[in-house]
């Protein structure tokens, strides 16, 4: 069976990553291996297995507020901040 192909350059551009040609080749082969491993799941015969019914009472939450984090602790994780905003590189589509 041939290894499934994935366009690593496309995925990298979606994730805003810049890859060298060497990295692209390396990741293509690595991800291909992962995908072909996952593909083995498709070999399993599941036609006779009944679909799992979700539980009647799913884990839902009542619409009641719980405490939030303090502004200080929220901002403490941010690489940059100003005026209580988390600052990121300019984003305009």
């Amino acid at each position: 069976m041939s290894a499934p192909q994935i366009n690593v350059s496309d995925v990298a551009s979606l994730a805003r990553l810049t890859l060298t040609p060497e990295e692209t080749a390396k990741f293509s082969s690595q991800i291909g291996q992962i995908l072909s491993h996952m593909d083995s799941l498709k070999q399993i015969e599941t036609g006779n297995v009944p679909e799992v019914t979700p539980p009647a009472q799913p884990n839902l939450r009542k619409d009641e507020p719980t405490p939030s984090l303090s502004l200080q602790s929220v901002l403490s994780n941010a690489p940059a901040q100003a005026n209580d905003l988390i600052v990121v590189p300019k984003i305009v589509e």
Binding site: A82, N83, L85, V87, K90, I91, V92
Partner: peptide
């Protein structure tokens, strides 16, 4: 919020 050279986020 978009500023001249960067953006700020209110989550």
């Amino acid at each position: 919020f978009h500023f001249e050279d960067r953006s700020g986020i209110d989550f």
